[in-house]
Every structure is written in C-alpha cells, then in structure tokens.
Simulated assay, not measured.
Amino acid sequence: MPANRRSGGRPEPELPELASGVRLLDVADEERATGPLHSLVLDHLLTNGGTAVWVDAGGHAVSQSLASLAPSPRTLDRIRVARGFTAHQHYDLVRELPEQVDDDTSLVVCPAFDRFYRGTETYADEGEDLLLRALATVAGVADRHDVPVLVTRSTRDSFSEPLAAAADETIRCEQTEFGPRFVADEFETLVYPTGNGAVQTTLAFWKRVLQARVSAAGAAETPTPEVTVDGAY
C-alpha cells in the first residue's frame, strides 16, 4: 500500500486502512494515543461510510477532540459510545456487542481494552479470565460481521500480551518531530507534507529509493563482501 496519495501533484498524508479483524493500535505512550486513535476512526468512517460502535474505557471517547478533527459534526452522529467504569461493566458491554453490531456497522472501537481487568480482585485470575473472554467476543464479532475491531492497550506487559497475540495486525504509532509515524504490515508513513508544496521525507523513504536503484542496476545480485571484525580498527 502506498504511504501517500497524490492530488494536484502534491502528496497528501495518508493513514493505514483498517481491514476486517482485530487491529491493535500500539502507541508507546498511552496518554498520547487519543489523537492517533481518533484519526484512524474518523478516517475509516469518512472513507468507508457506516457507523462505529465504541466501548470506551479510560475516557478515550472525547467528543471535543473528535469534533476538532472531524470535517463535519455530522460524522460524530455515526459513532455510538457506551462507557464502562469497572471490569464487570466493561465485560458486560463487550458481551452485548453481537447484538449492537448490525449491517450498517463498519467499525468497532475498544480502547484501553485491558485497563479495568487489571484491578479485578474478586478471586484469583478473574481479571485475566474476563480479559480473555472479552477478547474472544470481539474476535468473534470481527469474524462474524467482517468488520475491523480497533483496540489499544493501556500498558505493554505480559498481562496485555493476549491482545497482541490475538491481533490480526499491529499498527504501531510513534511521535516524531514531523508528526505521527504509522507502521503496519503493508503501510509506513514515509513523507510528511509541510506546506507550500514542500515535504519532509524519512530515512525509510530514502532507504526504499536506494533499494529500488540497486535493484534496477542489477547490483542486488552482487554478493556482499564479507567483513571480518577482530576487535580492532
């Protein structure tokens, strides 16, 4: 997938497309995940139509932020949000997803999926059990309705590892001085438009250019000379 479209001779910023299945948006700093999350949700609705069903945790469904990004306030009318504040509330909302998702639903959003299950202490391992059961439910929704389910995790650790393991794709996002950089299976942010027709390119862009030049010149078939390292220069 190309990293940038072109319009009028100028590259336009592009976001990863959300295919059906569980898609994990992996942001190093969860506190900065709201912007990338909202951008992916709105981009998907604008390009694919339909509605989004959102099971919120940790206050990620911020209407002011969504409104500031949406080209039209009407886009927000297509997002239905349910909020949970405990592990059991969140689990009950997830369990109801099969009844909430219909033919008009094009996206399911579940940010900070692991957040509440970490504090469950009713009995040993209850939090992990609820997390796994909830994850199985959203995976079933994605498969049955052929829709993407976009999830994030509150913390990268062994507890949230099942999210990464179950994801059909991990979309990594990191903040750079030029803007957010997304990397997925078939996508990578390579060019950042800076205005007035100028662009800022990344090292990955030039690496791809050089690889293409080497391949075109036939140098790709040339054996790489061995380099011996003996601890001295």
Rank of each mutant, 00 (worst) to 15 (best):
R115C: 08
R95W: 07
T86M: 09
S160Y: 06
Y91S: 14
V151A: 05
D146P: 00
D92H: 13
F187W: 07
R115T: 06
A184S: 15
A139L: 07
D104W: 02
Y117F: 15
D114Q: 00
R95H: 10
L150G: 05
P98I: 03
A184R: 00
D125C: 07
T155R: 15
D168V: 05
P111L: 05
G179D: 08
T152D: 06
H90G: 07
S160P: 00
Y123C: 02
E99I: 00
V147N: 09
P98E: 04
D114H: 05
Q175K: 09
E128R: 14
F113I: 01
P111A: 03
V151N: 03
T137V: 15
V101S: 03
F182D: 04
L93S: 03
L130C: 07
E99S: 14
V183W: 03
L132E: 12
I171W: 05
D146H: 11
A142T: 01
P98G: 01
A164H: 06
V149P: 07
S160L: 01
Q100W: 14
L97H: 08
V101G: 08
T155I: 12
E99T: 12
Q89K: 03
P180E: 13
Y91F: 15
P162V: 06
D92W: 09
S106A: 09
D146W: 00
S154D: 15
R153V: 15
R172K: 08
Y123M: 06
T152H: 04
G179L: 05
V183A: 10
H88M: 13
G119H: 11
R172P: 02
A165E: 15
A136C: 04
T155N: 10
C173T: 09
R95E: 11
D157E: 08
D102W: 06
L150H: 01
D125E: 12
S106R: 10
S154R: 07
G84S: 03
T170R: 11
S106T: 15
F113K: 00
D157P: 04
S160Q: 07
F85I: 01
D146L: 04
D129M: 14
C173H: 08
A87G: 14
G127T: 01
A166H: 06
D143R: 13
D102Y: 04
A184T: 04
A184V: 04
A167N: 07
V108L: 09
Y123R: 10
V138G: 08
F85Q: 10
A164N: 01
E128S: 14
S154F: 11
L131C: 08
F182W: 12
V108E: 10
F113M: 08
E186A: 13
F113T: 00
L97T: 02
V138N: 02
A124P: 09
V141S: 06
F178D: 13
A139N: 14
V149S: 04
Y123K: 03
E169K: 00
E128Q: 12
